[in-house]
Design a protein around this nucleic acid. Structure first.
Lengths: 168, 168
DNA sequence: TTACGTGCAAATAATTTGCAGTCCC
DNA sequence: GGGACTGCAAATTATTTGCACGTAA
């Protein structure tokens, strides 16, 4: 949030070895033409570690970084990045779509009230007894979302490690 | 889909013992005033077994059943039902919100391309090693969404019972 | 050059809201 | 009777699209 916002106006230039070039290569590998705005957005997305982001958020960030892009282009770019496998769309309920720059297998917390997802640190939840996929389909991925509610002060929720789903 | 559509225009009347009265009671228990439209929508929702439904879908169904309701009221009612615990909102990505009349613990398949969720028959996937909830929060529910992709004809996806998540 | 990208503004789609009139308790 | 509900239409919000122009290969 309070990170220094880099000025990316010169992202079109060629500077081998610099992070911008790395983004450029990554785009090319993904089959996307490395245009100025894609490089800038890619830099904003991938140079700050794992993050969840919406189109609106990325757009504001781009403006702060003096990157000339339109909101529409941000939307289009996010979609292209997702199709190209550079981003992952998160299944969150709520109006806006979130994109995750972390492509590894991990789960999410969803706080009630807040419309924000939080990465669950550590290894993903283990799954047992996955059902067979219907005929003609195969399992691509399993998303686990742990919904949280604000704890009652009285309920001594000893939140340790659960074993297996108990209820119903 | 081809089910006979009941005419619910008389749902306001009192007929003890009939399913309409059951809906009425259920609403009252949930703290909702049993108005004509709520009774009708409740009947449509709960008298056909478990289902996933959007506001638009329910609205069309109501029109077919000659129930005088507005789309706006359908939206409002679905939200009220959800808050009252009569429905559950499903975390699906995609533009529209789905509501599930099945309140029991179960998982969902999400077919790629199609924007529809399918209940996973049988017991829910077992979870191992749930992480502790962050301070001040407690786990309310765990949603598991299994994303499916159309299988390659060649890949012999022996979709049996998996043990534990392998990929990281 | 030339197809692919982008900006801009207008179009959609999904959902919410304000307010006046209606209905349940 | 009075507040809770509903209808209707207009407002929001999130996202997409059409088309003329710009730019990377």
């Amino acid at each position: 949030m309070a990170e220094p916002t880099p000025d990316l106006r010169s992202a079109g230039q060629t500077r081998p070895g610099c992070p911008v070039s790395r983004v450029r290569d990554r785009l090319r590998q993904a089959g996307l033409r490395p245009t100025r705005q894609r490089i800038c957005l890619g830099w904003l997305l991938f140079s700050k570690g794992d993050r969840h982001i919406t189109a609106e958020m990325l757009f504001e960030e781009a403006q702060r970084a003096r990157v000339p892009v339109t909101l529409a282009t941000v939307y289009n770019t996010l979609k292209q990045f997702t199709i190209a496998g550079l981003l992952r769309q998160i299944a969150a309920e709520g109006r806006r779509t979130y994109f995750d720059t972390d492509l590894t297998d991990h789960d999410h917390f969803l706080m009630e009230g807040e419309e924000e997802l939080v990465d669950i640190p550590g290894a993903p939840v283990g799954l047992a007894g996955l059902p067979p996929a219907p005929a003609g389909y195969e399992i691509e991925r399993v998303d686990v979302i742990i919904r949280l509610r604000r704890a009652d002060p009285e309920s001594t929720t000893a939140a340790g490690v659960w074993s297996l789903r108990s209820e119903r």
